[in-house]
Amino acid sequence: MSLLSPPAEEQSQTRTGSSRLDAVLRFRELGLVLALVALVAVTTSANSRFLSQQSIRDVLLATAITLLLACGMTMVVLTKGIDLSVGSVLGLSAFGTATLLSEYPSLPWPVAGLVGVALGAACGAVNGVVIAYGRVPALVATLGTLYVFRGIVYFWAGGSRVNAGDLPRDFLDFGTGRLLGVPYLFLIGVLVVLVVGQYLGRYRGGRDLYAIGSSEDAARLAGVAINRRLLQVYVASGALAGLGGVLHAARYGTVDASAGSGLELNVVAAVVVGGVAIFGGSGTVYGAALGALLLTVINNALPVLGIDQFWQRAIVGALIIAAIALDRLVAVRVGRSLRRKDSHVG
């Protein structure tokens, strides 16, 4: 062999330890937890009622629906996509579910809930087909359906709205009910986070999403069914937004055509702050959940701290930019150290 190549001895290097990938991600989640703790500590020292049961419950309730959507969004963003239609899908599902229950009060509400989820899944399927098979960029496709789905709700509602009084009592009870002091809605959110977390971490389908987002070409060569996976992901995101709509209806009781407007950006923010790379391939749903929680706590803490409404949005914005800057920094650092270290272990 004429190639000038390193002698074999160079292959012995120090062991690099267990997964560095996980270490980075854990570092990120730890950082979010620390930020949360610090924020809560500062706010509580300003006003001790911030840690009252009622206040905590408010935060959990406000986080619950964002959690669901953040799970769907995480899956989508992992594949290098984005789903901007979730707010509209939530509105459609909330209005559909509430209308169904007000017109057929004898219908068991879980059945109506399933209809709402199915409605969301159908919307997601539209997104998925356009993106996976129509090869339309996700940003454009879901921006389009954001308007289309919202338009459908407005057309359907025609200016009317469903009032809490029109809805079955047990449905509303579910929306405000608690188990051991924890709202049902939050429990559902946590359950979904855990299920999606398991799926993404430990199932082939979930790992395929990371693979697609990491390198679509490599995924194609590895025989990953890219189109099918993308379709599934958007259906899942739609279904979770549909579930979010059902919970929205149960929680507020009063639903008009604007339910969930603008929610998509909150969800994207939560996911990005939670460390899911916007260019796909890395991040966890746990990080996204922490991101959702952090944003809600910020929203609730700033008024307590006497900070102007205007600054709340500015602070969220700054946080998003800081999160992405941090990602870049970590990526550059890790990249450099990975390059420097030989991949061989000894």
């Binding site: 292959q11 012995s12 062991r15 690099t16 330890g17 267990s18 997964s19 560095r20 990938l21 890790v334 990249g335 450099r336 150290s337 990975l338 390059r339 991949s343 061989h344 272990v345 000894g346």
Partner: peptide, 10 residues
């Protein structure tokens, strides 16, 4: 000898 846990990046 390649560390199976390291990411392929880099």
């Amino acid at each position: 000898r390649v560390d199976p846990d390291r990411p392929a990046r880099g």
